[in-house]
């Protein structure tokens, strides 16, 4: 499997990355070389093997349903670029 420059451009767009023509070319090359390395895995028979969801052989600890966080919005909003009356403000998003 290999990626075209157009596909890499699309991935960059989805991640809101702006790539120059040069960067697009070199990134495509690098990504394809990584993909060809990963492709070696295709030679291995993986039937019956559970896909790995996490590298650690541990399971998720669960938390009791208790509220322990107090309202710290004042300190959080002190570092926000712009706030209104208790709201975080961002440039207008038109849906």
């Amino acid at each position: 499997m290999s990626l075209s420059e157009e596909q890499v451009g699309q991935i960059a767009y989805l991640a809101r990355l702006s790539l120059s023509e040069e960067a697009l070319q070199s990134n495509t090359k690098d990504l394809n070389s990584i993909l060809s390395l990963v492709e070696k895995l295709a030679e291995i028979d993986t039937d019956g093997i559970t896909p790995m969801a996490h590298p650690l052989h541990m399971t998720q600890r669960l938390r009791e349903d208790k509220v322990s966080e107090e309202d710290q919005s004042e300190s959080f909003q002190a570092i926000a670029p712009k706030i209104g009356k208790k709201h975080y403000l961002v440039p207008t998003v038109i849906e």
Partner: peptide, 15 residues
């Protein structure tokens, strides 16, 4: 929640 009609030039966000 995004609120679009609270401010003229901004979208207000309540998390």
């Amino acid at each position: 929640k995004s609120i679009h009609d609270l401010y003229d030039d901004f979208t207000a966000v309540d998390l």
